[in-house]
Computed example of a mutant assay.
Amino acid sequence: MPDMPELAASFTAALHDAGIAVGPDRTRSFARALTLLEPSTTRELRHCALATLVSDREQIEPFDAVFREVFGGPADRGAQRGQPGDPARSLPDAVPGRVPGSRKATADGRGREADTPPREAPVPLAASPLDRLANRDFADLSAEELARLSEVMRTIVLRTPTRLSRRRRTAHHGARIDVRRTLSVSRRTGGYPLRLRRFVPRARPRDLIVLCDISGSMEPYARAMLQLLYCAVRAAHAEVFTFATRLTRLTPALRRAGPDDALARAGRAAPDWSGGTRIAECLAEFNERFGRRGMAHGAVVAIISDGWDTGAPADLATHMARLSRVAYRVVWVNPRTASPRYRPLVAGMAAALPYCDAVVSAHNLAALDDFTAALSAPRHRR
């Protein structure tokens, strides 16, 4: 039987490439189902995958296509009714990637298993099991594990709450009358507006802004989080800044970079990597150059830092108060809060805490669920 975590990571990565949204939570559910049920046939494996990875009827067809490509399963639903002991649908015993032989159509049009030996299918396997990566602290991961982590992070979707834009769309039960469209349509009825046209504002996701601490105390976590921020820039059109002794806008570098050289470009763009920490000064620069110009107005702002600051706590509190007045929601990501013995005794963290809507750890892959939930939650002031 192949390694279940590797099997789950490989299959869910193929589903994501096919356009099916499969996050780390669904991947973990699929891995648990494989471990508990230990399916021995492709039919049982397909049922496990359907129950944990598919959430919509429209996803079944592309799901089956990926399943056939990876495991060589039958193409039609009727073929799924085979006996559990059918060797043509049995899972491989030793080599991950070995799948049953293909089906050939006979003259009467009915499918029959061909008398061909099993074939090898190119199934991509993760070097590190997903369960081991999911609960390991980002600071303890090697460079190879960080590279594998980026493959999983590409499946994570960062969503923000919606806001009403100035654009509008036609609606049958809108609260406001679209006078221009009503008059335009009334020309068909001799100028009499027999039917009122209405509209409602369009809803669009709020902007996402991330400020990531790359000082010496945050370097191990910053390398892992930048993998996620690279995906956020591409998918959610987020704005990413790094700070240590200075503020650097990293969005252009991440947009042009590929997944393999994102960290290299980030290091070249931010010369203060692994330096000291001046959170208050960098936050003041952000408020002055970007926040007041409208970038932070109504946006969700995430600050990734452990709170160590060489400046005065009163200055950080002042600039956090300015940011909280214009931002829709402020989420502080502090990996140190994962420890049960953590207390906000650091002066910088204590000064910023009253102006945060949520504080999460995001110190490992499993804890990223709390981070994504905090970004999409409605506004709530402490």
Rank of each mutant, 00 (worst) to 15 (best):
G78T: 07
G78Y: 04
A79V: 11
A79R: 10
A79T: 11
R81M: 13
G82P: 05
Q83T: 10
Q83P: 14
Q83V: 09
Q83K: 11
P84S: 10
D86N: 12
P87W: 05
A88K: 11
A88G: 07
A88F: 10
A88R: 15
R89F: 01
R89S: 03
S90D: 08
S90F: 00
L91E: 00
L91R: 03
L91M: 13
L91T: 11
L91K: 04
P92W: 09
P92C: 12
D93P: 14
A94Q: 08
A94V: 15
A94I: 13
V95T: 09
V95H: 06
P96S: 08
R98S: 12
R98F: 02
V99C: 10
V99H: 01
V99G: 06
P100C: 08
P100L: 03
P100W: 04
P100G: 13
G101Q: 11
G101T: 10
S102R: 10
S102E: 12
R103K: 04
R103A: 10
R103V: 15
R103G: 09
K104S: 09
K104V: 13
K104D: 07
T106C: 04
A107I: 12
D108L: 06
D108A: 12
D108H: 07
D108N: 15
G109C: 14
G109I: 15
R110V: 14
R110F: 05
G111M: 13
R112Y: 04
E113Y: 10
E113T: 14
D115S: 11
D115F: 11
T116H: 07
T116N: 10
P117N: 11
E120M: 14
E120A: 14
E120H: 09
E120G: 07
A121H: 06
A121K: 08
P122I: 04
P122T: 15
P122L: 06
V123D: 01
P124I: 05
P124F: 00
L125P: 05
L125G: 02
L125S: 03
A127N: 11
A127T: 08
A127H: 07
A127Q: 12
A127I: 05
S128N: 01
P129M: 04
P129Q: 06
L130C: 03
L130Y: 07
L130F: 05
D131Y: 00
D131Q: 08
R132P: 06
R132I: 09
R132K: 09
L133E: 15
A134T: 08
A134N: 05
N135C: 02
N135P: 00
N135M: 03
D137T: 04
F138N: 03
F138I: 01
F138W: 03
F138E: 00
A139K: 01
D140F: 00
D140W: 01
L141S: 08
S142M: 02
S142R: 05
A143L: 12
E144N: 09
E144D: 14
E144L: 01
E145F: 00
E145A: 01
L146Y: 04
L146S: 06
L146G: 07
A147L: 01
A147T: 14
R148M: 05
S150T: 13
S150H: 13
S150Y: 08
